[in-house]
Design a protein around this nucleic acid. Structure first.
Lengths: 235, 235
DNA sequence: TCAAAAGTGTTTCCACTACACCCATGA
DNA sequence: TCATGGGTGTAGTGGAAACACTTTTGA
């Protein structure tokens, strides 16, 4: 059974980032257009080879800073290893993929061959990068429900309706501003800053500004069900 | 900034499995005692080098089958890549770690240097394997709440109280049999088999047997909160 | 005074917990 | 008939959704 298996003593390893941001009501990802074959003119995720003295997380942060000038990443987490032997043509390369988030108010300066693309309308992607983007989107959507990860997409200060747009774009369905406010407030995630915004020309009550109380990801709903007993024993 | 980074053209990659099982009320993991340095006599996770023509998941399943005769793994999922440059002494090796589950009724034949250990009382572990085991346990506990992953720990047929023991061991706190039954029933995860067990010598009502309706992992509670609107629009 | 946008009060619903109670068996 | 373990009925609680209503502004 094992006779056909020849262990690789060594093989290449790259790191890839699905950098997500919300802008103008849609969730978008940072892609880079390949100039050369293979897969010339297809769009691929930023990243590159793992360095000798860095772990995968340091590596992806370094490469983002170097290659696409994204230094203000507000959240980074590993997605998975992509390891199909034929995932890229030529010598085998494993990839560790990351989900990275950038707050919606930032506009990092991008190299000319790099651009944001709406996740709902991806261009032709290279290799397995399309699948990685979908994994990233799904991970983000899941975590929007049971963590405070929204902080990583939001600007430092925001109104509830701005936050509603942001959550709606990330989740892919319309969120109620009323209920969003209460859900986050119940969990103690929101702090009023005391500031308000001027209403638009059409009038309306000025909106209060808020900030997120935490600036690191925290699981806010560890037990959807099967909570530990509050007191005494059960059953 | 990048001048100090010398990309590895190639480096070694291993796969490691945290194989978990519930037995006698405790969650345990399969470990293998290292005979040789480095870290001789410490306990390590089963696994080995990635083969040339396999992806990481095929690799871990192959290695489990070959090395520790665990062929009846009911669930496999990637945990993470462990990539600290000094995670093992000597030439650098990246590791992709897996969570694997074995149903509680199975007793795979083990090589002499391999044994189960309660996760709450781990022996001295090698390299970063202790951290990997904890990650596996945490992942399992989280998924017990919002997926049907219990199916992978349970025998094909079980009573509710047996299932209660199993969930309690996996979660680390006492679960109510009454509520466990209802939570799983509400989600349509349980099917009565029609069989009953004989009561013990001390009497008692015979217990009905159940099975899990699904034998693959399914997310049963995608939205702890912020559910999509059932009908009409919101806000 | 009206329209628009923000924010609050309140109702309804439902899932989960907790616990009392009933059921079926062995001795 | 009693002890024992299995199983069900049901009240209470709390979080979330939905929606009506109030507040605050510009025109």
């Amino acid at each position: 059974m094992a006779d056909a298996i020849t262990p690789h003593s060594a093989l290449a390893h790259e790191v890839l980032a699905a950098v997500l941001q919300v802008r103008e009501g849609s969730l978008r990802v940072l892609l880079w257009e390949r100039a050369r074959e293979p897969h010339a003119h297809r769009w691929s995720l930023p990243g590159g080879r793992l360095g000798a003295d860095e772990d995968v997380e340091s590596s992806i942060l370094r490469q983002l800073a170097e290659k696409v000038d994204v230094r203000q990443v507000s959240h980074v987490e590993q997605l998975a290893v992509f390891s199909a032997p034929d995932r890229v043509p030529g010598p085998r390369v494993l990839a560790t993929a990351f989900l990275c988030l950038v707050p919606s108010h930032l506009d990092p300066e991008l190299p000319p061959d790099t651009a944001w693309h709406a996740i709902d309308a991806l261009p032709r992607t290279a290799f397995d990068h399309g699948a990685i983007v979908l994994r990233a989107r799904n991970r983000l959507r899941a975590k929007m429900s049971y963590t405070n990860i929204g902080f990583a997409l939001a600007p430092p200060e925001f109104t509830i309706s701005a936050l509603r747009e942001l959550y709606s774009a990330a989740l892919g369905y319309r969120v109620s501003a009323t209920n969003l406010q209460r859900v986050l407030a119940r969990r103690g995630l929101l702090e009023p800053t005391g500031h308000t915004t001027k209403p638009g020309r059409s009038g309306g009550r000025p909106a209060a500004q808020f900030r997120f109380a935490e600036t690191a990801m925290v699981v806010t709903d560890p037990f959807a069900v099967l909570r530990p007993p509050s007191t005494g024993r059960t059953g």
